[in-house]
Design a protein around this nucleic acid. Sequence first.
DNA 1: ACCTTTGCTTAACAGTGTTAGATTATTTAA
DNA 2: TTAAATAATCTAACACTGTTAAGCAAAGGT
Lengths: 198, 198
Amino acid sequence: MASKERILRLKDETRNNILAASIDIVKEEGWQALSMRKIADKIEYTAPIIYEYFANKDAILNELTRQGFVKLSKLMEQAISEHTDPAKQLEAMWLAYWDFAFAEKELYQVMYGVEVNCCAMQNMCPDIQLPMNMLWDKIEEIIPVEKRTEKYIDTKYYTFWSVVHGLISINMTRKLTSDELNQQVLKDAIGGIINSMK
Amino acid sequence: MASKERILRLKDETRNNILAASIDIVKEEGWQALSMRKIADKIEYTAPIIYEYFANKDAILNELTRQGFVKLSKLMEQAISEHTDPAKQLEAMWLAYWDFAFAEKELYQVMYGVEVNCCAMQNMCPDIQLPMNMLWDKIEEIIPVEKRTEKYIDTKYYTFWSVVHGLISINMTRKLTSDELNQQVLKDAIGGIINSMK
DNA sequence: ACCTTTGCTTAACAGTGTTAGATTATTTAA
DNA sequence: TTAAATAATCTAACACTGTTAAGCAAAGGT
């Protein structure tokens, strides 16, 4: 009778081992290098037994994704508990979100579909910096001379870029926002930042 | 003599064919399905000849990325030319950026490392919506009752999320922003949006 | 006519996710 | 204790992947 439970506990343990081995590999070599056989090696089994615990490789990623969201929500609860003012709470929640993204970088990547492929971006041809330079210059042009420091321009530049790119990626990975809502967010944000510069 | 040029023109043509076949495949089946053999099939060659034109698969992606940035910068130049007021120009540039992202979705994905893997996100367990629901609720709490419509909450919610997630992905894909600049952008943006709600 | 270069293909290697079949070990029943 | 049944695990294979080496066949130059 009790041996049944022990066996179930063992099964649960190897299931966890599979997940732990997976993030280990990803932390060492990146998502691209994660393979069923490498996972099997790490848990000292052969590849096919993984399919007794997960339907396929995607199911492993899905479970890691799920655990990531659970972790994140716990960190947010903690952030709430450390303040009483709702505005402060909200700020702390977003900062917790930010910290989580870098503390659990690999989880964040799979949760929100952030690739890190383009490694040779820096030393590539200057074409790839063209659009961003154009934006930077135009922002510089708008900012009144008395405020026009490099740091200030950088701040505005990244604020613009973040909100636009963020909204785009959210739209591309999940498809739930309506067109009008997108336009609302976009115009509001852009207009808001432009006004804040004057 | 002239035949040399014809041959060079032909080589250039197949090079372009490789790139065109690649985006064709990606548009039909997604980045994940792009393979050297499929490209070869489409241009009616065998896989190894692709290596006469590109060092490897990554080189193809890099070239598509480069072309994407060139395309984007041209659209931005056009956006500039359609206005005279610098603020209007900047707004038009960001809107061009936005339009480009969806008109050339596949290019944008490879340019900025946006994955679309997580297909079964919607019908997955509710855990993945937990953190976002917490944020939504807290935002609702802060907004004064007279403004508190669902549309308004949604707008603020997505503005927050966009700017934070956008800044995170920018940091993860290119690593050039400093910590202080990140904190500056983050605190400014969050504070700004919170103030705009009151 | 021969030699060299070019264009292209076939074959192969090592790796990937995944499945079927065989093998071994463990539990259950008589 | 032995026999049957069940569970746990592995080997082998399939159809792919990116990439490279060897070979063939046609074209160009001398």
